[in-house]
C-alpha cells in the first residue's frame, strides 16, 4: 500500500512536469496544426540555462547539500531560464517555421524534426554529452507519512506547476492576447480578417509555451538529479502524447493528460517492468488516437469538405 502511494506521488510529480511541457505542444498545435518536435529541445535548453545561471549565481551542486540558498535566487534562475527559452522559441518560429508556414502540412513537420535534431546535436557540442548533476537550488528536506516519503522538491514541483498553469489559464481567458490565441485556434483566417496580427499572436504562443517548458526543465532537473542534452527527446514525445491524450488544443486537457501519462509510466515501471515504461506511452497514444482521437477533454471538430 505504501509502495502504491509512493509510486503515485512520484508519478504525479513527473506528470506535472509533462503537463507543463504538454501545454506548449497543445497551444502550438491548436493554432498552427504543427507538432513542434523541437519543443522537447526547448525544454532541454531551459534546463541547461537554469544549470548555468544557477552556477553563475554561485549555487553549486556540492555545497548545497549543506547550505540553504535564498528563495529569490531560485526565482531568478527560473525567470532567466524561462526568458531564454521564450527567446529561443520565438527564434525557432521566425527562422524555421515561418518560412514554411503555408507549405503543405508535412513540410513544417519535417522542418520541426530537423530543428529538434539540430538542437540535440548542438546541445551535445555546447554542453558536452555527459550528464550533469543539477545544482541544488533547493536543499532537500524529506517528510515521511506512514512510510510514504515526500520531499520538499516534490511539493515545490506541484506548487510551481500549479501556479504556472493557473497563470496560463488566466492569461488565455482574460487577456487580449489570450483571447486572440483562442480566436486563432478556432479559425486562423477569420481571425486575420478580424484584424488580429496573427504573426504577433503566434510569436507570443511560442514564447509562452517555451517559457513553460523551461520551467518544466528546471523542475525536471531538481527532481531527476541529472540532465543531459538528449533529455528532451523522450520527455518531449511523452509530453506530446499527454497533449494528445488530454485533447489537443485543450489546456486543462494537457494537464490531465500529463498527470495520467506520468502515473501510467511510473506504475508500469514499478509493477510491470521498467523495460516497457517508454512503450506504455506509445501504447496509450495509439489507443487514444484509435478510440477517441479528439482526446479526453478535446472537442470534436468535423472535417469539412
Amino acid at each position: 500500500m505504501t509502495q502504491l502511494l509512493q509510486q503515485i506521488i512520484n508519478g504525479l510529480s513527473l506528470g506535472s512536469i509533462y503537463a507543463l511541457i504538454a501545454l506548449g505542444y497543445t497551444m502550438v498545435y491548436g493554432i498552427l496544426k504543427l507538432i513542434n518536435f523541437a519543443h522537447g529541445e526547448v525544454f532541454m535548453v531551459g534546463a541547461y540555462t537554469g544549470y548555468y545561471s544557477a552556477g553563475a549565481l554561485g549555487i553549486s551542486a556540492y555545497e548545497a547539500q549543506h547550505r540553504d540558498f535564498p528563495v529569490y535566487l531560485g526565482l531568478i534562475v527560473l525567470v532567466t531560464a524561462m526568458a531564454t527559452a521564450a527567446l529561443l522559441g520565438v527564434l525557432i518560429e521566425l527562422l524555421a517555421y515561418r518560412p514554411v508556414r503555408n507549405a503543405p502540412r508535412l513540410t513544417p513537420l519535417i522542418t520541426a524534426i530537423g530543428v529538434s535534431l539540430f538542437l540535440q546535436n548542438a546541445g551535445m557540442l555546447l554542453f558536452s554529452p555527459n550528464p550533469q548533476r543539477y545544482p541544488a537550488i533547493l536543499s532537500e528536506v524529506r517528510f515521511e507519512f506512514f512510510g510514504v516519503i515526500v520531499t520538499n522538491i516534490k511539493l515545490t514541483i506541484f506548487v510551481v506547476a500549479l501556479c504556472l498553469m493557473l497563470g496560463l489559464h488566466l492569461f488565455v481567458q482574460k487577456t487580449w492576447t489570450g483571447r486572440a490565441m483562442r480566436a486563432l485556434s478556432f479559425n486562423i483566417d477569420a481571425a486575420k480578417l478580424m484584424g488580429i496580427d496573427t504573426d504577433n499572436v503566434i510569436r507570443s504562443t511560442f514564447a509562452v509555451g517555451s517559457a513553460l517548458a523551461a520551467a518544466g526543465g528546471i523542475l525536471f532537473g531538481l527532481d531527476q538529479i541529472t540532465i543531459n542534452p538528449l533529455m528532451g527527446v523522450l520527455t518531449g514525445l511523452k509530453a506530446f502524447v499527454a497533449a494528445v491524450l488530454g485533447g489537443i488544443g485543450s489546456i486543462p486537457g494537457a494537464v490531465v493528460g500529463g498527470l495520467l501519462i506520468g502515473l501510467a509510466e511510473q506504475l508500469t515501471a514499478g509493477y510491470l517492468s521498467a523495460e516497457y515504461r517508454d512503450a506504455i506511452t506509445f501504447v496509450i497514444l495509439i489507443l487514444i488516437l484509435l478510440l477517441k482521437p479528439e482526446g479526453l477533454l478535446g472537442v470534436v471538430r468535423v472535417e469539412k469538405v
Partner: peptide, 15 residues
C-alpha cells in the same frame, strides 16, 4: 531494469 539515458529511477527503487 532501466534504459541508458533514463533519469527517473524512483519506480524501480520504490519497488
Amino acid at each position: 531494469a532501466y534504459s541508458q539515458n533514463d533519469t527517473d529511477f524512483s519506480a524501480q527503487v520504490t519497488a
